[in-house]
Design a protein around this nucleic acid. Sequence first.
RNA 1: GGGGCCGUCGUUCAGCCUGGUUUAGGACGCCAGAUUGUCAAUCUGGAGGUCGCGGGUUCAAAUCCCGUCGGCCCCGCCA
Length: 585
Amino acid sequence: MRTHRCGELSRRHVGQTVTLNGWVQRRRDHGNVIFIDVRDRQGLTQIVFNPEISPAAHQQAHVLRGEFVVAVTGTVALRPEGSANPNLATGEIEVLVKTVEILNDARTPPFLIEDEGEVTEALRLKYRYLDLRRPKMQRLLRLRHEVMQQARSFLNGQDFLEVETPMLTKSTPEGARDYLVPSRVNPGCFYALPQSPQLFKQILMVSGIDRYYQIARCFRDEDLRNDRQPEFTQIDLELSFIDREQVMVLMEQMIRLVFQTTAGVELPAPFPRMAYAEAMGRYGSDKPDLRFGMPLHDLQDFASKTEFKVFRETLAKGGIVKAIVVKGGVEISRSRIDALGETAKGFGAKGLAWVKIVGAGQLESVIAKFLDARSLLAAVPDAQTGDLLLFVADKPKVVYDVLGRLRLLLAEERNLIDQKAWRPLWVVDFPMLEYDEALKRYVAIHHPFTAPLDEDLPLLETDPLKVRAKAYDLVMNGSELGGGSIRIHRREVQSQVFDLLGIGKEEAASKFGFLLEALEYGAPPHGGIAFGLDRLIMLLGGADSIRDVIAFPKTQRAQCPMTDAPSHVGPEQLKDLSIKLDLIE
RNA sequence: GGGGCCGUCGUUCAGCCUGGUUUAGGACGCCAGAUUGUCAAUCUGGAGGUCGCGGGUUCAAAUCCCGUCGGCCCCGCCA
């Protein structure tokens, strides 16, 4: 079989007799001389069939077709003067074939195995094994492997133990919808596939594992998106006897190493930090994209003094007024601004006020007569002649959300994003709870095991919404790479939080009883974090869909076009599981 | 649950708005022949499509209407 890979031969090998195995990429038949590119994971090598070297092999070359699997043996030779191919790693040499063996033939593939020319994704997924032969997909799979290896090797070096946790586990309240698995030996009972190994990794801390990690598959039965699959992978870890500062410092090292070794990207040290309140106030997002400016400007003072009724009434009702500055935005047409207004309404705003600064102290706007140019420009020092200001007045949550999203949309539209920049950011001091109007109760922003800041502990009883958590998210270029927290390690605090979340004693006992009990047996202070591996690969590899970084992903309807999963099962299988179907039309 | 875009030879795209001039066209691929230096080889010739599916309007439907299936994007959802 093979002596070399298709990407490794160079002028060093000239004169050697080698055997290559691989797939026929392309055949160029010149009559007497036939060229074939043989491809494997490593690359391409041009092999030459010449009747003067081997009439038999030359004869056989006529039947070779794309994607045939071959073994070729021949001599490595320098290509003739002027015929080297500088675009090919092996372009200086070629293999003069003595013998060729067809290891397998192949049907004509439904699409070409090359990066050029996009093919419908449905077709790619049906023939995923062919799609994965394409260099782009090979590169992404390799990148994924390398990221995992770098993370593993870093964590191993830091004395972490890789421990596997169950896939068949217990359904938990809160969070996403669970994937359920019926239990045959316990009729009527169901396992849930883990949404994350959260509870187990905390238990492992109680077990004295001290430092745990796992490249963990997680399952969430929610609707899919461009960056969301029903099963995805986390680099999941947990540490004992640490505080959040130590976690962040350690994780920065890991992320910096991964970026450096797998993508050659040097990230700043240390990563900047930002409190949640500042992220929301300045960027309208808890995962701000720092590759461009366009911050939100606070207009409380200005709005309180203006004649514009909408602003004043919003303030009177406890709302806020903020604005973003679109540099050079006077050129934006009225119809485009109206469309932005519709977009803003789609995001939940009641409306979008706008002002064009057409000259020194000169405003152009339907509301210009209510506004004093001088005090507006004083309130928004960024704004200059030629700029467009967009205002939203509403409850804080709406203002942040709408302006935050407009900020991203406009940055994209106006090409303000530095595509080469890498801007990591730790977002810290998240609120622990928010109030869910629909459920009429508090819900955990991170999860119910997140510890409150020590100094905010008393607020748990007096003003729970003011309580900040020992949580941290790592954000890169506006997407969340990972998040974690220091956990509650004392039973009484955990019970208090469950009370606030409206999780009764009985429910807590039946759902998390094992964790609560474990906390009573000497649980060490602990905390951890989980990184979304798929999204990390997307960022590093420049992939525009999560499906491109997963070998066998699902379509938007959570189906696999290759295997046709999920599928119906026979009555015997259902009977074994004590399941009767009641399909709703 | 909701909104949007898309579906035409193996692939990809045009044609659709404004129904008939289309025997549904181009490129890539495929097949055959030619070809001794190509590497997205080239040249010549050829095969290949019930226009996703069903129904309707019409003298006439790829084209207009309704429904349906599938793909993608987004909102909701994703502690």
